[in-house]
Simulated scan of single mutants.
Amino acid sequence: MIAPPGNSSPVASPFEAVLLEPLVIPGMQVEAGDPVALLYSPEYETARAEVESQRIMAEHMDHLLERALELRELGLRSAQEADEAEHDSKSAHLNLAASQRRLSAVRSAGGAGRFKLVAPASGTVASVSVAAGEAVGMSEPFLSIFDGKRYWLDVALPERVANTFSIGSSVSLPGSAGKGTVVAIDPTVDARLQSVRIKIELPTSSSWRLGQLVNLSLDTAEQETNLVIPARAIVRINGTDCVFIDTGEGFRRVEVSIITRSRDDAVLNAGVSPGDQVAVSGLAALKNLAEGV
């Protein structure tokens, strides 16, 4: 179980800092604006001083602009000089806004260089990756807040099975009233496992948790004709997968199409019908007869 993209809000420090104390732990509910971590950085005091300096500069530029406009009306300043004063005023306000945004998620904690970071959004604390006393990199997320509105399953399927699905395919979830929906299919195949990862959006009618394991049933278009037989019933003859079906008077060799198989079971979508009895013993002799040995 994972959080979909866009449903988690990372928390990062605007400065190189040291985490003095995490104020939350995974699983806690927070509201936007709640303090979540106490940190220390000497850059914090410098940033606060820069904001104050830029505020004073912006006010000064506003005064100069106002004076330039008055003098232009009196014919004592050119239009170009007034335009330059307006440009300087706007630049000063842009610099001030940029510095203020840097401190938008920061609150003073008392004491030089100490500050608190606040939650950017409401939700559940999903993770805290840094411990007290450890360094926190500038703009490197170390805490995550999950809004809990949507959940995805991340599933690895055998390539043959994955090929029977498309975006929008439904997935049954035992114990849940709703169905999941396939929202993403990895275009690459894991070379070692020959598997493909798919993402499944879970219904909001049930309660879920990040990291939870979920039983699921994949609803393919061929599901009504798919049959599960013992894997040991399958034999390989001339490069083709086959089974031997009991006809009552003997055994008939039938070629089968395997969707996927495990050590114990194999899922077929062709070759065997409901009610057919397949041989699971004496297969070596049956294979020899089929090959004319």
Rank of each mutant, 00 (worst) to 15 (best):
R160T: 09
E45N: 14
I237V: 15
A98C: 08
E201M: 00
A12N: 11
D34Y: 07
N95A: 08
G275N: 13
L213I: 15
L39P: 05
L94G: 12
E140V: 15
P187F: 08
G275D: 15
A231N: 12
G110R: 00
R232M: 10
W152F: 06
G111I: 09
I237K: 12
M138L: 09
G275S: 14
E21R: 03
G271W: 07
L153Y: 03
R263V: 12
Y151Q: 00
S108M: 07
A49V: 14
R209M: 09
R236F: 10
A119G: 02
R232K: 15
V155H: 03
L286M: 07
A177D: 13
I237L: 15
E70C: 06
R77D: 11
V182K: 00
I2V: 14
S262K: 08
V183R: 01
A119L: 03
M61H: 09
H63I: 13
R160F: 05
A162E: 02
M61V: 14
S139V: 10
A109W: 03
A266C: 11
S144T: 15
Q194R: 15
L76Q: 08
L65S: 13
D186R: 06
A58Q: 04
E222D: 15
M57A: 14
S99E: 09
S129I: 11
Q80K: 10
P4T: 07
S169H: 00
V293Y: 13
V182M: 01
P230R: 03
V189K: 01
T46Y: 10
S8L: 02
G110T: 05
T240C: 07
R102D: 15
E43F: 11
G137Y: 12
L268R: 04
P22V: 01
A121I: 07
A132W: 12
P14Q: 07
E31W: 09
L38Q: 09
G275Q: 13
G148S: 08
I259R: 00
P42I: 09
R107M: 08
K116A: 08
F146S: 01
E45V: 13
R160D: 06
A121F: 07
A105L: 13
A97F: 08
G133F: 06
Y40N: 11
R209H: 12
R72Q: 14
L23W: 04
F142V: 04
P158N: 06
E73H: 07
F251W: 11
L69F: 08
I25C: 08
L216P: 03
G282L: 04
N95P: 04
H87W: 12
L103Q: 06
A132M: 07
T181L: 00
R160E: 06
A266R: 05
L39A: 05
P26Y: 01
D276L: 06
D62W: 11
A162H: 05
S127A: 14
L19N: 04
L173C: 04
M28N: 10
L74W: 14
E16G: 02
A79Q: 11
S8G: 11
F142I: 05
G123F: 01
M138Q: 15
V130G: 02
A119E: 01
L213F: 14
I258L: 04
S170G: 10
V183F: 03
G292Q: 10
N226Y: 10
L103D: 05
E249H: 12
S262G: 15
E255N: 10
V254M: 10
G292W: 10
K116W: 10
